[in-house]
Nucleic acid binder design. Structure first.
Lengths: 157, 157
DNA sequence: AACAACATATAAGAGCTCTGATATCATGGG
DNA sequence: CCCATGATATCAGAGCTCTTATATGTTGTT
């Protein structure tokens, strides 16, 4: 069963193309774009998840780990791992809550802000390529669909 | 910065909604759907990646680990991990290639076929919910977009 | 026959993500 | 006042995914 076997389609062909399962296409697209982002950010050693976290902390300075998890649709444990790696890299700072003894505020460090700025330039280029060849109306449909999938209640019967 | 802070939007609101970055929305949607699938398959202990692998092996019996990686847009190493876990669970069988001394054919075991059948019923339900509230034309646009993102050359300048 | 080029498999190491469990802290009802 | 409830943080374990590196097998060229 080598690469020349005509019964195995390539990505975008046959069942793996526009006639395939939406869930499968979604999985493939997200994986491909994630890889593309991480290749673009490889020079800085920043992952897609880290870029998302940096963006969130930049937009909402002083949030907690639990806040970040809610924003990024992650579990607090996952967020904690990402925050730990970013802290180890010196990109963010943990500050204890003034009153609450458990909460820790998160803020970008100066180097974290500079890093985010550099990453943004590259990711924005990719973001722009994401809509090439699609009308405004089609893009609207895509956006509405993605939001609908992301907000569908997972605990539904 | 508790949950009541009005400056932090929920998923689907503000910048996290239809006006947000497409890459971010894609990441969110794929994560949410992956979780939904794995919750539906939790009873069987099957992950989304394993379901995809089982489906591929069922559709193209006798493929190799490298074939599977190409089909699923994964590295051979990643595919090898998934295959290893499925083999350990007894869902698939490795057969040595008749001629080529290195290649191993993959096939579902009887229990693997039965498992896939049960998983399919549940996942197909979710797949059906994925298009609720969207016209055929909109769905076409979404499919075309997902395929375009998945097949965009990652090595592009 | 020997070597180069390519394909396949696999191991190691890192990061992401989940579930489950544990500990700490805050708040409200008895 | 004390405790139940809920929020926060964190540890441990598992699976997925990548990169890098290594070993083995096949094929075509010289």
């Amino acid at each position: 069963m080598g690469k020349g076997n005509p019964s195995i389609p390539s990505a975008g062909e046959g069942k793996r193309g526009e006639q395939g399962y939406l869930g499968y296409l979604l999985r493939q697209a997200a994986g491909a774009y994630r890889l593309k982002v991480e290749r673009a950010l490889d020079e800085f050693g920043v992952t897609q998840a880290q870029f998302a976290a940096l963006t969130m902390i930049s937009a909402y300075p002083g949030l907690s780990n639990a806040d970040l998890a809610r924003l990024a649709v992650l579990t607090p444990q996952t967020a904690s791992v990402i925050v730990g790696n970013l802290e180890r890299a010196g990109s963010l700072i943990r500050r204890p809550h003034a009153v609450h003894g458990r909460i820790q505020h998160l803020d970008l460090s100066d180097s974290g802000r500079a890093l985010l700025k550099k990453c943004r330039e590259r990711v924005y280029k990719l973001e722009g390529e994401l809509t090439a060849g699609f009308s405004a109306e089609e893009e609207r449909a895509v956006r509405r669909w993605l939001v609908a999938v992301a907000t569908a209640d997972a605990a539904q019967p």
